[in-house]
Design a protein around this nucleic acid. Sequence first.
DNA 1: CTCTGTGCAAAGGATTTGCAGGGAA
DNA 2: TTCCCTGCAAATCCTTTGCACAGAG
Lengths: 147, 147
Amino acid sequence: MDTARDIHASGLKVTAPRQRILELFHTGRDQHLTAEDVFRLLLEEHEDIGMATVYRVLMQFVEAGILARNQFENGPARFELNTGKHHDHLVCTQCGRVEEFVDPYIEKRQRVIAEQRGFALIEHTLSLYGQCRICSEQQAGAIAASS
Amino acid sequence: MDTARDIHASGLKVTAPRQRILELFHTGRDQHLTAEDVFRLLLEEHEDIGMATVYRVLMQFVEAGILARNQFENGPARFELNTGKHHDHLVCTQCGRVEEFVDPYIEKRQRVIAEQRGFALIEHTLSLYGQCRICSEQQAGAIAASS
DNA sequence: CTCTGTGCAAAGGATTTGCAGGGAA
DNA sequence: TTCCCTGCAAATCCTTTGCACAGAG
């Protein structure tokens, strides 16, 4: 919550762009923002921050362990607060909503599989793509209305 | 194995570029090639095929269900023969080697999780990143030699 | 003969980098 | 005052598209 402290603790100077960007991620829930999202939100706040800075800051935060970077399919990278707790994602192919989940059993099987193949596991990404409840309902409603 | 037949069955004209590209994937094992790989291999065969054609053909093959496209981390897309059997990947972060695996339990858990969240599951990607056995051994050898 | 395919070059989206001025510590 | 930061523009990487000609059916 204390953005200035987090930034300083990472050995980075506490500047306006860095504070504003980090605040964005602390605002609201389910924040899985693209660099473009961050840039646009800053514009709306009348902050004059360039895309290059957005990318640089996001990257520094990832290296500092403050943010985590996710690459879904072939779209732009999405950033989220790094809570320290690993988790996987459910991504709505319709509205882009991202939900998180953890399944201890899947995590365990992954370690077993890597071991069997002689792989020294470093990390993994698991993403489930589908239509979320809300989009499914909207679609059902639209079909009903058109008939 | 009969590339011309596969291509024709997809409603595509049987042309030299399409046949050469498809043959590449039938050559050898563990073919997870990038568009760049394909382009380079064709050059070595003295085939005069442009990158645009490589991308177009790869895309058509994916749409035809002949190839499958995988996006690992933030690197370029990798293509492989679509055997019709879903599988996930182990990717060596050192040498780039890609191995495949299937785990019925993980598959099942994924369906359960999606259902619990009200997601109509369409597809998923699971990739384990780490160091393969060969790279681990080489590294161990290098350390031993330097001491 | 008629379209689909192809190569080339240019365009495109996402991200990175070079540079000179600006601002934290 | 000293570097670290920043904005801008240009560069990069991967991929797609426009166009006129070539070739499969």
